[in-house]
């Protein structure tokens, strides 16, 4: 499937998943759809038939509330039946809104309490190094999430240990629950901050699949440092009324009517 079509399909399935519950983390799920499309169509070395393969690449979705977007991508890759998308957050589901390593094939780390993913990813990357496995570990962190101090403990450690198979994406959609990130607690200049911590850094348009692909390919060329790619994104991207909703799009409804309208836009 063409990567742009894949991204569109991820958005459709993300909304299907959240629609099954009536509401959920729409904004931050839609903002990472293009990144997930690039990762799962061009970069992630994974085998849906063997989701725990030792040599696989791993993804830590540190902004664990964007689970529906990851579930959309994983279902499209064949990790589990698409029907599972309709079970989001129902008691006993394999798909909780915040990702869980023990419940969902293809999920490589539990996340939801923000700020822990980068540290966990450091552990996964160290484990690969100890085993002599050449996999990449990808991490997706929200821009607001960077307000959690533990990220910077993880960043310091990753650089100190020269974890150059660790690639961090910051989903810079510039919003968080209480408002615009720059008003709540400004964390810019993100790229400069990671560079100061010893990362190889880039900044790209997070909705330009070719630009994301190029940035990842370039990161893989740089040895001896962990990588950070700041992606400028739009919260709710792909559906006009979500894109213009403001910070409320973080957690909002997907009613029958909204779902039908959104699917039309994503046709």
């Amino acid at each position: 499937m063409d990567v742009k079509q894949f991204a569109k399909q991820i958005r459709r399935n993300t909304l299907r998943c959240i629609h099954s519950q009536g509401s959920g983390h729409v904004g931050g799920s839609l903002s990472i759809a293009d990144l997930l499309a690039v990762l799962y169509s061009k970069h992630m070395r994974v085998d849906p038939a063997n989701p725990k393969s030792e040599s696989r690449d791993k993804l830590v979705l540190s902004k664990g509330h964007a689970g529906p977007a990851l579930y959309a991508a994983l279902s499209l890759k064949g990790f589990f039946p698409e029907e599972w998308l309709d079970t989001l957050n129902k008691l006993g589901t394999r798909l909780p809104s915040h990702v869980n390593i023990n419940l969902t094939p293809g999920v490589d780390m539990t996340a939801g309490s923000l700020g822990q993913g980068l540290s966990c990813a450091c552990g996964l990357a160290l484990a690969d190094r100890l085993k002599g496995v050449d996999g990449y570990v990808y991490v997706i962190i929200g821009d607001g999430e960077l307000q959690e101090g533990q990220n910077w403990e993880g960043a310091m450690f990753a650089a100190h240990k020269k974890l150059d198979r660790l690639i961090v994406f910051v989903d810079s959609n510039k919003m968080q629950i209480d408002g615009l990130t720059e008003n709540v607690l400004n964390i810019e200049d993100i790229q400069a901050k990671f560079a100061a911590f010893g990362f190889d850094t880039q900044r790209a348009n997070g909705h330009d699949c070719e630009a994301i692909d190029r940035a990842i390919a370039q990161a893989k060329q740089t040895c001896g440092k962990p990588h950070c790619i700041v992606l400028d994104t739009v919260k709710g991207k792909g559906v006009s009324f979500y894109e213009t909703m403001g910070p409320g799009v973080h957690s909002t409804t997907v009613t029958d009517e909204q779902y039908a309208l959104a699917l039309k836009e994503l046709d």
Partner: peptide, 11 residues
């Protein structure tokens, strides 16, 4: 959390 990541990989 680093320990959790190592444990998730079998250590």
């Amino acid at each position: 959390c680093i320990a959790a990541g190592l444990a998730a990989s079998g250590f």
